[in-house]
Simulated assay, not measured.
Amino acid sequence: MKPALVGDIGGTNARFALWTEGHISSVQTLATAQFETPEVAIRHYLSSLGRVPQQIADLCLACAGPVSGEHFRFTNSHWSLSRTGLSQALELDHLLLINDFTAMALGMTRLHEQQCRVIRSGQADPNSPILVIGPGTGLGVSTLVPEPNNGWRVLPGEGGHVDLPVGSLRELALWQQLFSEFGHVRAEDVLSGRGLVRLYRAICTLDQHQAHLDTPSEISKAALAGDPVAIEVLSLFCIWLGRVAGNAVLTTGARGGVYVVGGVIPRFSDFFLASGFADSFCAKGCMSHYLEQVPAWLVTAEYPGLEGAGVALEQLLNKSA
């Protein structure tokens, strides 16, 4: 039986794995900038395993951006594809394209207890939706809805593009600085890897500091080493993420809990767990009580997006069997 291929493609990296009998294997991470198209990257991945496309029957790609229609252009990447063109080029039986945070949400259904750290304890409502939110190249947001017979349905969206909510005079001053540079200020303009850099530069401009840090990694390391400006950057980042997550729970009724995922926070996970995320998450005035018992976890699983892509593909194949 031919294995399937699954991919989790973000703005910076594309992760690929084989999916066989409900499990991933042979995981590789490729930089999207090094390949002209997804097809070229897939052929490179298969070649590195000594395989050719004809040995793969089915493919699921979890793609950053809204997925619909024949043609897809990746958000935060130069890649694009045609469903028909890719299927024919790789001689596939089935091609499934899903939003990357649809895959991430489905990946939460395969988590083990040791793959999460508690951000805030509470009592999850088993009949309510679950929120999945994660800063990476952008800010992903998705909702996992329970269905009868222990099934799950995902409501994909573009929650990273909501307006950045302001909750203090300091935040207002920084929002004004960001607005003067970018116009409309979205949540992911701050809550992403590039957002850390934007926030750092906004603070430096506002407070007349000399900016000397240029990357998210440098900012994270400086904060953990005690740099006061970098500490404020991470602190505000965590507070803003809590506020955006709390807003999303109010909107979707996701009292089944919140999973925080993505590639940014693992750089400073201990700092994050001790941050103002939990307080800002609940600070909703007269509706604060609605969020008091909603638990939140930081996901430490290595490849939840690939796992979720495999789950999505398996569901498709089971339906068509």
Results as ranks from 00 to 15, higher is better:
M1R: 08
L5E: 14
L5S: 13
A14N: 04
F16A: 00
H23T: 14
T29I: 12
E39F: 05
Y45G: 11
L49C: 00
Q54T: 05
I56V: 06
A57S: 09
D58K: 00
L59T: 13
C60L: 05
S68K: 05
H71M: 01
F72M: 02
R83W: 11
T84Y: 10
G85E: 10
Q88N: 13
E91A: 15
E91W: 04
E91C: 12
D93Q: 09
L95K: 01
L96G: 09
D100K: 03
R110P: 09
H112D: 10
E113Q: 02
I130R: 15
G136R: 05
G138T: 06
L139T: 04
V141G: 11
L144D: 01
V145T: 12
V145R: 03
P146V: 02
P146D: 02
N150W: 13
W152F: 13
P156N: 04
E158D: 08
G159L: 08
G160W: 00
H161C: 05
V162P: 01
L164T: 05
L172Q: 15
L174C: 08
Q176R: 05
H184R: 07
V190G: 08
S192T: 06
L196Y: 05
R198Y: 06
Y200V: 14
C204G: 13
T205E: 06
H209W: 10
H209L: 08
A211N: 09
L213K: 00
T215Y: 12
S217F: 01
E218W: 11
V233M: 13
V233E: 04
I239G: 05
V244H: 09
G253C: 03
V258K: 00
G276F: 11
C282G: 05
K284Q: 10
G285L: 01
E292R: 12
E292F: 15
V299F: 00
T300W: 03
T300K: 02
T300S: 05
Y303T: 07
E307S: 06
E314L: 15
N318S: 12
